[in-house]
Nucleic acid binder design. Sequence first.
DNA 1: AAGCATATCAACCGCTGTTTA
DNA 2: GTAAACAGCGGTTGATATGCT
Length: 555
Amino acid sequence: MGRVNNEIEDEVLPSDVSAAQSNGESYEGSTSVVLKKGPWTSTEDDILVDYVNKNGEGNWNAVQKHTGLLRCGKSCRLRWANHLRPNLKKGAFTAEEERFIAELHAKMGNKWARMAAHLPGRTDNEIKNYWNTRIKRRQRAGLPLYPPEVSLQGFQESQRNQSNGGLNGGNRMHLDMLQKNSYEIHGAIFDSLKDNQGILPYAPKFSDVSVCGNMLKGLDSSSQYCSVMPPASPKNKRLRESTIPFNGSKDKKNNGLYPFCQNRDNNSDKIAHSFGMQALLDPGPSSHNSMCFSHSLSNGNSSTSKPTFEAVKLELPSLQYPELHLGSWGTSPPPPMLESVDDFFQSHTPISTLESDCSSPQNSGLLDALLYQAKTLSSSRNHCSDKGSNSSTATPGDRGDNSALNVYETEWEDYADPVSPFGATSILNECPALIGSENSLDEQLSLQTFTGNIPKLEFVDQVWTPDNENQTLSFLNITRPDLLFASDWHELGFGHGKNQAITTDTTTTLLGDDFAADHKHMTSGTSQSSQVWGFGSCASAANNMHALCHLSDLG
DNA sequence: AAGCATATCAACCGCTGTTTA
DNA sequence: GTAAACAGCGGTTGATATGCT
């Protein structure tokens, strides 16, 4: 945009490089030729176009030699491809193109060049810029990344592919994404959960939390594969002006992003952020002194301990916000913000007894989430009316003591499909009390939608039938259809009972040889890998969570 | 109107895979 | 078989435009 203005300076071969550099242009090159960098001038464009017309594309390094154009071959290629070649379509993407891009991205991931090949006249750079911008926007709004139809389509394809068995081309693409464009999962968690299935009947339920938030390695806000982008930090003006009692610190350093623990590090922030818990958990200054829901990071150990084998990359479903805006692709108002979890926890069962059980510095987010899930499972039954009295909170729980969990478990078994582990039973879904009550008009509308979903907090209590499939799907928020392409979450160890069988063959088929090798490694020595990965305490955390549920039930 | 934050776009950088000598 | 050159890709950066307070 702005650089086009530099076309005023139409010197292709500035006689005095140093003078040109003083004008903001830069040059680089070998000792013999100083190559120009920065915006292209129209004269340079003419030279390049002329050259390509005569000699065709390719051999870009020859451009400089034959024309004297002081541009490196890469720069020439880029300029030609992105701006000069004929049949380039300029201007904003049409709605159809946008939708197509979403579809393509769902299938391909960040394969911009491949995507561009499907969009005549569009360049990979254009698509990339568009997508990244869109990511930011939707992340800020906490909206799903993909339009629901794309998600559903992908989901259906996945189901189809799975029922057909093996990998067809479509699955190959998914696999490609899985391997290259996804969060990395610390594989050891599979062991931790699997090995505890006997004593941790609810492990699968938490797998959405576990997988989404905490076995993730190298997460950051730029991760684009979180199916629902977590709301961005309150740094955003629009969030700032929100009437939500965010108490957000204006300290940019902190950004008010410390969800659980006072002794947190960047990783926990990242985890929480990538987890979709950032806004959810943002406690604000007033709550920083509240109970520290930390079990792991307080030992000050570095969280950067590296695994001894390469992490497995998997496409991960994120923490799923309730789908507020299905069908409002790209135009939805931001979702309601949420009350501090610290506050929420504080108002409920103390959990300090859990802190000592998890010493791993790496799994903070995981355990936080696990514990949180446990808390909310219990709280949603026992305490929902406490905190949520000023919201349209429906109290889900006047059922029998174990009904929720039992049904949950039954649900898991009955609906042993790829969606359930990461679907509608999100943290938020189970915790209506977290919903703020003071919102702008738009937000209130969203909130109504949000709270309107609250009966679906009992999703786990619903019997899965074809009739309610569609309805439930709308809450599943399947925004990365590729995530869902198999029941491998079960097979990888998140299942239990009859579904827990793990076969290397299946793993290999679904995730490739690398993963299978890693998986073998993992399963060959659970305790070792757990220690190596710093997840040794996951099991105990999960057990604690289980126990916590019962404690809460009893209490 | 000023200041700030965000959006947009073009271009660069580093890496990887392929081709060629 | 190996190294260099080349081509391409994806991530990132930086400048400007735009919008909001």
